[in-house]
């Protein structure tokens, strides 16, 4: 068989295995744990832990079946606590990668996803919240913001992609100020992370993983900015740091 054709089949196989993991591992193994966690009086922590294990399992599997991909994850990331984590965004893999790496973590999710059956329920229970202050989800956003300061104080993290959406060319677009405002409001440090090359493995707009090309995926902490800076200054500093991440690519 031609090498190109074999590689294509490998990509299809990897994609199928990943989808099987998402569906079967959830239905057969994780769903009872999620249901049990939902009965807990404060399910958020348990859901976040389950999400971390679920996506951690996904990446463990992905690493095993994609030997041409090298992974370099800064070990200090697992120790991040009580921080607002901001990061560049280049692939759908990025948010679930951060969920698998960070401990207790909340994040902001597109409002549309909250109406997806099962997935939307897990998002709510996990303490994730929509980027909207109007409509039926306004109450959820308010509730999560009211408890954000305490959540961060107790060791939780909030991660946000301030670009809002994936960058198609890796450049840093307009940064939404929401993450910086929350950091200011909660007096939390901002940790700036750089994710590289996930888009080479799972490219925006493509259905199949692209595993044939040797690739090095990395997640690094670029900077820690302590609270006390003004909003404009914070935004400029984060942009400079994230642009440094892009230049290295």
């Amino acid at each position: 068989m031609e090498t190109g054709k074999a590689d294509r089949l490998i990509d299809i196989g990897v994609t199928l295995i990943c989808w099987c993991y998402f569906i079967l591992a959830f239905l057969l193994f994780f769903s009872p744990f999620y249901l049990a966690a939902a009965r807990n009086s404060s399910p958020e922590h348990r859901f976040q832990r389950l999400n971390r294990v679920f996506y951690g399992g996904f990446f463990a599997l992905l690493r095993r079946i994609t030997p041409r991909q090298q992974w370099s994850i800064d070990p200090e990331i697992a120790g991040i606590r009580s921080s607002v984590v901001v990061c560049n965004h280049v692939s759908y893999l990025d948010p679930i990668l951060l969920i698998s790496l960070l401990g207790r973590a909340r994040t902001i999710v597109k409002p549309l996803f909250f109406s997806v059956p099962v997935f939307g329920w897990i998002l709510r229970r996990s303490g994730y919240f929509p980027a909207t202050s109007s409509g039926p989800l306004a109450g959820l956003m308010l509730m999560q913001m009211e408890t954000m300061e305490q959540f961060l104080r107790e060791g939780g993290n909030l991660f946000i992609f301030p670009q809002g959406t994936r960058s198609r060319d890796g450049s840093i677009g307009v940064l939404d100020e929401g993450a910086f405002k929350i950091a200011r409001y909660c007096k939390a440090p901002v940790r700036v992370l750089c994710i590289r090359n996930t888009e080479r493995l799972f490219t925006p707009g493509k259905f199949f993983f692209f595993t044939r090309r040797p690739n090095r995926i990395s997640v690094r902490i670029l900077d820690t900015i302590l609270p006390g800076r003004g909003l404009s200054e914070l935004k400029v500093r984060v942009r400079q740091v994230l642009e440094g991440c892009t230049r290295e690519a």
Binding site: T132, M141, M145, E146, E177, G178, K181, I182, R184, Y185
Partner: peptide
């Protein structure tokens, strides 16, 4: 002034 819902929550506090 770029005042959004997060600012509103901070102002309310």
């Amino acid at each position: 002034h770029g005042f959004d819902s997060i600012d509103a929550i901070e102002l309310l506090s």
